[in-house]
Simulated scan of single mutants.
Amino acid sequence: MLVPVALSILLSGVLSGSATLTRRATTCNGFSELCDRSYGNVSFVGAHDSYAVGTNNLAVNQDYDVTQQLTDGVRLLQMQALNNSGTIQLCHTSCLLFNGGTLQDYLTKVKTWMDANPNDVVTLLIVNINNLAPSLFGDVFSNVGLDKVSYAPKNSTTAFTDWPTLGSMIDSGTRLVTFLDNQADLTSVPYLLDEFTNVWETPFDVTTEFDCSVNRTKGDSSTQMYLINHFLDMVVLGNPAPNVGAANVTNSLSGTNSLGAQVDLCVAQYSRPPNFLLVDFYEYGGGSVFQEAANLNGVTYSPTTPIAQPKSTSSSASGSGQSGGSTTTGNGNGAISGSHGVASLLVALSVLLGAFTVV
């Protein structure tokens, strides 16, 4: 009778809240050290406009699709979503400028990757360009099965100190966190969280020097998680466009305008590291963006396989970076040259149409 009695005591304790179940997850986002770490106390690498994939095109921000991004270590996927003839698609303000396909196709890839990697917590950040109702996004999440793995908090606002641990999120099976930049309503879709009551951001569309000022928030920045927009743009026909030519330098660990420099500045200013490091062309720098996140998390970055190599080798701005990434050359003044010529025509057309906006 000892076993039934012991089991009865354990169940009684669990029901009363006095017992603690043993955590099953032993590795969380690749590191055992992160399992007991709060989600709000972890730094994640994010891919800016993660759907905008291509080469030699001023409307793209990444060389590799979402599956490769996740495989290499990206854990925040940012995207811009709008209504295109009744379907939610991923586009730069206008789908005429760049169409990244449907949200459903994109999320299907995310679901497939998450199913194959059950010990990872992933975050989505959706820029809701057309102010669509959260229920429309919820329908897509349900169609691909991501609603079942989505984390739904008890309150609409969670301080960075009050998030659950990665281990508990993995154990509960709710390991996808999704933020909408507007229109979130937990009474409608409980797992689509309002970004700016939970996360504040630094300025975006930076073409000169990065800083750590609070650019967008709807809450108390001292209690929120925060995201640094660390993607460098250049001005093309009066509009910002990704500066792939400087990506090795921008993504590096040290030096002027590097990721490491902005992180150091923010840590000095706020006495805590950023939660999200949002970058373009994440693979430039040979893994430096992941090294920076590992440094902040107090873990050792040692991938079992090399990350992907850069594809976008054409340049319109000078700069070469760390080993592992392609070296790019240029005239350093942001002028368009070579294979970027066709893309510049697209930009010019979009300007005439009033369509070119990058966030």
Rank of each mutant, 00 (worst) to 15 (best):
P274L: 02
L176G: 01
L21W: 03
T329Y: 14
M225W: 00
G298V: 00
L265H: 02
V42Y: 03
S316C: 15
S221G: 01
V3S: 10
F356A: 12
G338V: 01
Y284F: 15
L132G: 07
G30I: 00
T22G: 02
P306S: 05
T55D: 08
G319L: 07
A159Y: 02
F141W: 01
S323H: 13
G298D: 02
L346N: 14
D36E: 14
I228D: 01
T123H: 10
R75Y: 01
D181S: 01
G17C: 02
V342L: 13
T300A: 05
T93I: 09
D105M: 09
G238K: 11
W200C: 03
G13L: 11
G287R: 15
N333S: 15
I9Y: 11
N83M: 08
L259A: 14
I129P: 05
Q78E: 14
S38P: 10
G17D: 09
V60K: 04
S168W: 02
L11V: 00
P303T: 00
Q89H: 13
D233A: 14
D120E: 12
F290T: 09
S302D: 13
V351K: 06
A246N: 11
P190A: 06
S318R: 12
D105K: 01
V279M: 15
V122I: 06
D185C: 00
